[in-house]
Design a protein around this nucleic acid. Structure first.
Lengths: 335, 335
DNA sequence: CTGAAAGCGCTAACAC
DNA sequence: GTGTTAGCGCTTTCAG
């Protein structure tokens, strides 16, 4: 890398003159500015990022910690975060917690050595289950900016970007009820997560409100280790009358659809299925899955905006929570 | 952040003593070391990353540039890269080129200001189509370490991690031939990519070698803007006798399977389908898709290892190309 | 055993 | 208009 010093030597001026010239300082003569800038361009001079950061105490880099990149929701959120950050002149350092508390702790710890200006993260499953958040509040106490998205913890005082999980599940269940469904089952592999619990409550609330709904709610939990397909198979065996399925995670809706078709159910005539996901995930089923769309791109983009807002405003303001609208998108698996 | 200076002041010693004590220097008395380390721990002292990097000219950070995180292959590669890098004490700065040359150029440019020690990347589609690689060779000339994976450019002199694309497609086609298939179609949305061309050649070569194969090879290109599903539909309409499909990208195999089942083809009795992907992508079809497995995790991991090898060895060595084995995994869509 | 000083690359207050 | 100096946080050589 070429440095100011090298430019200065070549031009027989001082380092500070070069520095000022590159910033088009009023103090420096037109002529010098020209000579300096020409040489700088010619040698492809770039200010050393580390020196700049050390001086300014700003890195223009955000730490992004997601639980799992293989989950399409997080991949898309990451995509959106990278896009928006890059547009605003920020880089992102990405860590994957792999749903593990220790990895989340170590990532936060390691990056809080001045590597990043703030964190955008979604909490690991283990962290949510054990409800341990001291590692996060410790950073918050130090004044390090943080935006939590999707999986948040209510008691943490920081910016948050969420969707209306309760309302979305409520609305979807209402839709199934309006279709006249009487055996609506909820399936989920995320019942341990904050968002999972909210979605289940939305489902329960909708059923509860419907006086004509005669049956008990059925919530099927898919454990992490479980054979998803077997569980879905069993659902159809033990519960032949099922006529509505609400999947509140990213994939079980697709599995349920495949299995149902395989078992000979007519979808959506006899059975409606609604999944929970971003728009364009797994769109190649036939019929196409109706979903609650999460507008993942907006979630990521908004997270970055909140972060940069906070970073670039000097005044401390109270934490903000933004709720991104969801949308029930009816495709081929609902009437 | 707490600094050496602050520790020094509190302990009434000099900054250099503190620094040495933290490194367990022989020069420093047991007692001082203890006092320093205790206070450091108590105040949760962390060496400032920027200062360290500025001093050492090493960032322990890798730049990772991938074309698209929403593509499961790249998501998994990113996952593997992050895992391995983190294990080896490196962070990663992630950029998404979005298959665009300009974005790739600017990402490389911006990060080559001392932000990273080296780059791990897979070339954007546009870059491959236009065959512009000056932005890459410029960095190589400067001596910045680079590992290319999957989508590489032959003439660039740097480390590479690839799979045997030709051989993998050749083997898969051979398998279809052994099943006695006589109308084997290749479908692809990546024919513009280096890997796409190699895979197509493998397919062509296999057909060519089979003296009993009576028909012309058929290569169906799916343009980026195209309606994939319509094209696949047309395939079945215009080519009713098709009895073998080799999809050389990540998703068209799944689409073909759905469409074929929908059209009433018996799979695999009348029609075999082989996709190209990592192991566990879209495994919930019925029957399950047979695929050429790319061992994506190994690709990512090996890329990091090559990079770190190069960074941590002083001697310059010649570029290395590692070929990761593929594996034909026969599931439900082949006989 | 401890401290002073220089320097990584840069900016900015302050000379001249 | 240009140069000198100090300092961001750290390591390391050299002095004491």
């Amino acid at each position: 890398m070429v440095t100011l010093k090298q430019l200065a030597e070549q031009l027989n001026v001082s380092v500070s003159t070069v520095s000022k010239a590159l910033h088009n300082s009023e103090e420096i003569s037109k002529d010098t500015i020209l000579r300096v800038q020409e040489l700088a361009k010619h040698l492809n001079y770039q200010p050393n990022k580390m020196a700049l950061s050390l001086k300014s105490n700003r890195t223009n880099t955000l730490g992004v910690i997601i639980p799992n990149v293989l989950n399409h929701f997080f991949a898309k959120a990451l995509y959106a975060i990278e896009m928006e950050a890059s547009k605003q002149g920020y880089n992102i350092i990405t860590c994957v917690s792999n749903e593990l508390l220790v990895k989340e702790e170590s990532s936060l710890q390691l990056l809080s050595n001045g590597s990043v200006d703030g964190f955008i993260m979604s909490i690991a499953e283990e962290t949510q289950i054990k409800n341990k958040t001291e590692h996060i509040s410790k950073l918050l106490d130090k004044g390090i900016p943080m935006v939590l998205f999707d999986r948040v913890a209510d008691h943490l005082e920081c910016d948050k970007v969420i969707i209306d999980d309760f309302g979305a599940a409520y609305e979807a269940t209402k839709h199934l009820l309006q279709e006249g469904r009487q055996h609506i089952v909820l399936i989920s592999d995320i019942e341990e997560l904050s968002v999972g619990k909210l979605r289940i409550n939305g489902y329960l609330k909708a059923l509860e409100e419907e006086v004509n709904y005669k049956n008990e709610p059925i919530v099927i939990h898919i454990g992490k280790e479980a054979d998803v397909e077997k569980i879905v198979d069993n659902l159809f065996l033990s519960n032949k009358k099922v006529d509505g399925i609400l999947s509140i995670d990213n994939i079980s809706g697709v599995i349920a659809l495949h299995k149902a078709l395989n078992k000979g159910y007519k979808v959506p005539e006899e059975l409606s299925i609604i999944g929970f996901s971003d728009d364009n995930v797994l769109v190649f089923t036939d019929p196409k899955l109706s979903t609650i769309s999460q507008h993942t791109f907006d979630i990521g983009k908004t997270s970055v905006q909140l972060m940069i807002d906070r970073l670039e405003r000097k005044a401390k303001t109270d934490p903000v929570t933004k709720t991104i609208r969801t949308k029930l998108v009816l495709r081929g698996t609902t009437k």
